[in-house]
Design a protein around this nucleic acid. Structure first.
Length: 290
DNA sequence: GACCAGGGTAACT
DNA sequence: AGTTACCATGGT
């Protein structure tokens, strides 16, 4: 791939192993909306991005070279060698090969760590549509105004300081159910440094996970999602209901517990477990595997 | 009305 | 330590 600035836009050409539709619709990102064919508005890192893909060309509108290199290049994982990863995984077995070929343009985004903590607390026993709604409402109520585009006002995802002002009662009004108190717990433990948020990125994956598990509402699966989408720890394998279905139906072929599925996958896919997980998740959800 | 959604906690054996 | 009821809410 190569990228260049043209007028106020960044144009990326010869972009392979990336599909904007598949990537945004793969259950990892909740702050985007489709405005056209393969055209979206994405909100991340206090910025609003209009982005459109046409085959191997990607246009990021109203973006400087500096902003692209600082934010979006990393956000879309354009620095990762997906050719190599897909080759390695495809050699594992026929099932993962089919999952990769089903959606070869899925990439794992690099999103804001704090936002991932709250977002995946919201994800527990919830569906993607309602997670999206919750993240949007939290941003509108506690985040900062960024700009208005086509009559829509956009707000940043609130920092932990801003979100700390929220009460359980207030959050409950946002219809996020039993997760309200978990968000307050996350804010208070980060504020008091009982959870060492600032150093999470410097810790080993095991240490960081142990730290995250101190927060109520964060269990094994939610912690793995935070480690993956917020810290790019690719050796995890978040086992949710969809992954459970696809792993039991295609790999293990008998009803086993979540822990056993995760163990099986980690042994089978090794250091690339999370990539396999993301392809399988998308494959299972779109094919409605039962 | 039961079951499900990118599960987790707390109260049980 | 291993299992089970319960948790809010909206969609099917």
């Amino acid at each position: 791939m190569t990228y260049k600035q043209e007028n106020n836009n960044i144009i990326i050409t010869n972009l392979t192993h990336f599909d904007i539709d598949e990537t945004l619709d793969s259950g990892q990102c909740f702050r985007y909306e489709q405005i056209g064919e393969s055209e979206y508005i994405v909100v991340a890192y206090r910025r609003i991005l209009r982005i459109k893909q046409e085959n191997e060309t990607l246009t990021l509108y109203n973006t400087t070279l500096e902003e692209y290199e600082k934010i979006w290049h990393k956000y879309f994982s354009f620095d990762e060698d997906y050719e190599n990863i897909k080759n390695i995984l495809s050699g594992k077995d026929e099932i993962i090969r089919e999952a990769i070929n089903y959606a070869p343009g899925v990439r794992i985004l690099k999103q804001d760590l704090w936002e991932m903590i709250i977002t995946f607390i919201l994800s527990a026993n919830n569906n993607i549509k309602r997670i999206k709604q919750g993240v949007l409402q939290i941003s509108e109520k506690y985040g900062e105004f960024i700009a208005e585009v086509n009559g829509v006002k956009y707000y940043s995802f609130p920092t932990s300081e801003l979100l700390s002002k929220a009460t359980v009662l207030e959050l409950h009004e946002l219809k996020i159910g039993f997760r309200d108190k978990y968000i307050v717990d996350a804010c208070s433990k980060v504020a008091s440094s009982e959870v060492d948020f600032e150093n999470l990125a410097n810790m080993s994956t095991d240490e960081a996970k142990k730290e995250l598990l101190k927060i109520k509402g964060i269990g094994n699966k939610v912690a793995d999602c935070i480690l993956l989408f917020g810290l790019h720890r690719y050796e995890v394998f978040p086992t949710d209901t969809w992954i459970k279905k696809v792993m039991i139906s295609l790999y293990i072929k008998k009803d086993v517990k979540i822990e056993e599925i995760t163990k099986y996958a980690l042994e089978h896919f090794g250091e690339n477990s999370s990539y396999a997980q993301q392809y399988l998740f998308h494959y299972a959800r779109k094919n409605k595997i039962s």
